[in-house]
Design a protein around this nucleic acid. Structure first.
Lengths: 122, 122
DNA sequence: CGCTATTGACTACAGATGTAATCAATGCGA
DNA sequence: TCGCATTGATTACATCTGTAGTCAATAGCG
């Protein structure tokens, strides 16, 4: 439903998911901790996110307080689904097999996965 | 290293990963089985993939035989890694937890995952 | 041997994206 | 009250992407 969020826009979304609502300046501060962008750039991205209806803003005096309209979990879920279907034919185990073969799984990961599976089988 | 592959370009890559080498026409036939694109569009995408050095072409008479320069597995691995780090802070178990919570895991998936984990613990 | 069909190369063009500069309104301090 | 600083809105512009059309070379057919 909601329109596509670009890479740069996602960085701004992350800042808003960390805390909200925030002013444009607050968001920019957070973003600029990792990206070397100007304040204007962040504001432009905020506008585009507004246009895409994935964030909203409430007026607070002369500025706006921005907040996400979609939950990070929902975004993550849909992106994950898209990736699994695009790259793994919709199957999850090949994904995990893939990660396993790349040694991407730590001992902790393995333990946690076992827990998850245990829970699912009940 | 290799440049970013766009959505449309990826469709062409998939056709080349299915079989290679192939002429532009062969690739287009495969692509057009799922996408309503023109032959020219597929050729343009082939050129862009050439420019990005992710495919190569060997002359065969008056046409070219195209072939991928990167393995699908490598592409999938790097895309998966990017996603895991972008969306899950580099941890895999939250990813699986995510999928589990969305009921994306079939009984077969669960069984396969157990097998995979068994193999990893040895 | 000239014409046509094939095939790659070049050009086109609108919309998305990354990255900002500039404009305009307005509220606050001097 | 007036100018400056703050903040959102508008405009800019190069590149990438999606989606082709057109041109040019050439090889095979008649």
């Amino acid at each position: 439903m909601s329109e596509k969020i670009s890479e740069a826009e996602l960085v701004v979304m992350e800042a808003l998911w960390e805390a909200s609502p925030q002013t444009a300046n607050d968001v920019a501060d957070r973003v600029m901790a990792t990206r070397d962008w100007s304040l204007q750039t962040v504001k432009t991205l905020l506008s585009r996110l507004m246009a895409k209806d994935v964030i909203a803003a409430d007026q607070d005096g002369r500025r706006f307080l921005y907040r996400p309209m979609i939950a990070r979990d929902d975004y993550v879920a849909s992106e994950t689904g898209r990736m699994v279907s695009r790259l793994f034919g919709g199957r999850v185990s090949p994904l995990v097999a893939q990660l396993a073969s790349q040694d991407q799984l730590s001992a902790d990961d393995i333990a946690e996965l076992e827990e998850i599976l245990k829970g699912l089988k009940s």
